[in-house]
Every structure is written in C-alpha cells, then in structure tokens.
Amino acid sequence: MSRVIESDEQLAQKALGLLELTSLNADDTSERIIALCERALTPVGNVAAVCVLPRFAGLARRTLDSLHAREVRVVAAVNFPNGGASIAMVESETHAAMLTGADEIDLVYPFHAHLAGDKRIGGEMIAACKAKCARRGLLTVTLETGVLRDSQIIHDACRTAIREGAAFVKTSTGKQIVSATPQAARILIEAIAELGSQVGLKASGNVRTLSEARIYLDMAQARFGSFWLEPGRLRLGASSLLDDLLVELGVGP
C-alpha cells in the first residue's frame, strides 16, 4: 500500500489531530487541568482529546467548552493506574465521571486478577463499565500489555474487550516500566482485524517523537488503510509528543 503521508510536516499535522493529552497524577490540581485543556488548542489545530482522573472530568469539559473547543473529547480514566478487581468501584467512578461531563471512559483492565487466574472478571468489569457509560459514552479498555506480556494473554484480553463493547483498545497506562511497543500494538491490531470490528486502537506511553509516532500510523495504515488515520479509529496517548510535533510544524519553542 502506498504511503499517503509523505512528508514529516504532513505526518506531524496528522499526528496532532490524533493526540490524547493526559494528566493522571495523584497530585493534579485544577490549575494543572485547566493548563492541559489550554494546551490542547494549538495554533495549528486542536488535539483529539484530553484524559484526566474522574474528579476532573467536569472541570475539563467546562474549560474546553469555554474555549469553544467542544470537539475535543474529555476522557476519564477509571480503575487507574493499578487495574484493581472491584467492579463496584469502577461503576461508581464511571457513573460520576459521565454525570459531570466525561465524553469517554478509559477503563484499566484488571490485569493482576487475570494473571492470577481469574479469566472472567475482565469481561464482567468491561460489561459493567460499558453499561454505566450509557449510549453517549465511548469506552476504552487499557490492557497494560507490558504487564500481561504474553502475546496470547494480550490477544485473549483484547478479544474480550472487543466482545464486551469497547470502542478502543489501548496498549498501556504509561505508568509501568514497559508501555506501548510496536509488538503489542500489532497484537491488538490483529485481534481487531480478526473480529471484523469497528474498534479503534490507542498507543500510549513511550511515544515521544515524530519518528515513534510514524511507526504506529504506518502500522495502522498498512493493516486497515488510510481512512483509519482519524481520531475515531486511532489515537496517540502521548502528551510529550506534542512539543516535537509543534517544532516540526514551525510553532514550537
């Protein structure tokens, strides 16, 4: 398949529109979240989304709306970062985030329980979270592939996420030693292709440069075609990537 994005500048412009900026720290403040939302609007276009902890979902949505950026999605990360096994907690976090303004939920898969032998809780948690998202909220399932490690385990977890209604499957939280890798993304892409699903992919963690972003864009395009390079199908969870893209586009520091 021929490359649609030919130059670094074209690639940078495309990647900018796929970015999901994140601030997911225990010590996050209102000021930090407002700054994140302001950063989502650049002189050369807006990013796709911002991802915050559930307690900041309402603030993020209000801030973006006040900046006339309704199209920038607010994603609330639940069960973050440790991927616990409490479905009740996930339901509570999801309900609160949706109620206060989240457009999407990012659920960390219960990877520890899965590795300990509980193969059912992942599907049950995803289904419960999906139900709390209601019709208007998209659901991402973060698989923490760097911890699951084994390709078959990752593949099986991904298929579970897709079957239970995930809109996106995501490589990692970015909080583990191993985050996004091309190998993990390839496993997720193949699971998506196998099920003939409309599910998208998020590559998150260790995507810091334009050349690293190119790997994931090329991979998705090679498997699904150039139409996949849009924020409803592919996103890059990579706040540190933004500076590199802005430099390439001539508006960076």
Rank of each mutant, 00 (worst) to 15 (best):
I192Y: 05
A69S: 05
T209Y: 01
A238L: 01
Q221N: 08
N206G: 08
K119V: 13
G45W: 03
L36C: 10
C51W: 09
S197G: 07
P43K: 06
A134W: 09
N206A: 14
F224A: 01
S23Q: 07
C51I: 11
S86T: 15
I162E: 10
Q198N: 12
G101A: 15
K170R: 08
D27Y: 01
V4E: 12
E144M: 04
A161N: 09
L201V: 15
S7D: 15
D156T: 15
Q10W: 11
E190M: 07
T42N: 06
S226C: 11
D28C: 11
A49I: 06
I192C: 06
Q183Y: 06
I153L: 06
M125S: 00
L53A: 06
D118V: 12
L139K: 09
E212S: 11
N25W: 01
L24S: 07
L236C: 03
N46C: 10
Y109K: 11
A85N: 09
L148Y: 02
R62H: 12
P81Y: 03
I105W: 10
T94N: 05
F227V: 13
E190H: 05
S211H: 15
A193E: 14
A60K: 10
A116E: 14
Q176F: 04
K130P: 09
L67G: 01
D243R: 12
L21V: 00
E164T: 04
R233G: 03
L21D: 11
A57Y: 07
V147H: 04
D156Q: 15
A85W: 03
M125D: 11
G123W: 05
F56T: 01
V75N: 07
V147T: 00
A222W: 09
E124W: 12
A26S: 13
N46S: 15
N79W: 00
R32F: 08
H112M: 13
R233A: 08
V108C: 09
A116N: 12
I192M: 03
T142F: 09
K119N: 09
A131K: 13
R136Y: 11
G200Y: 05
A161P: 07
L246G: 10
I121K: 03
A161Q: 10
D243S: 14
C51P: 05
L245D: 04
E190P: 01
G84Y: 13
I5D: 05
L59P: 02
S179T: 08
S23V: 04
E230Y: 04
L64C: 08
N46M: 07
V74L: 03
V251F: 00
A185C: 15
A131E: 13
E38M: 10
E164I: 02
R32E: 06
G123D: 04
L245P: 08
L24D: 01
T29N: 01
L59C: 12
L234Y: 13
G146V: 11
T209K: 09
K170N: 00
I87E: 06
L242S: 13
D218M: 07
S7R: 15
L217S: 14
R61N: 06
A128Q: 09
V72R: 08
D218N: 11
N25P: 00
V50F: 06
L195E: 08
L18A: 05
V90I: 15
C37K: 01
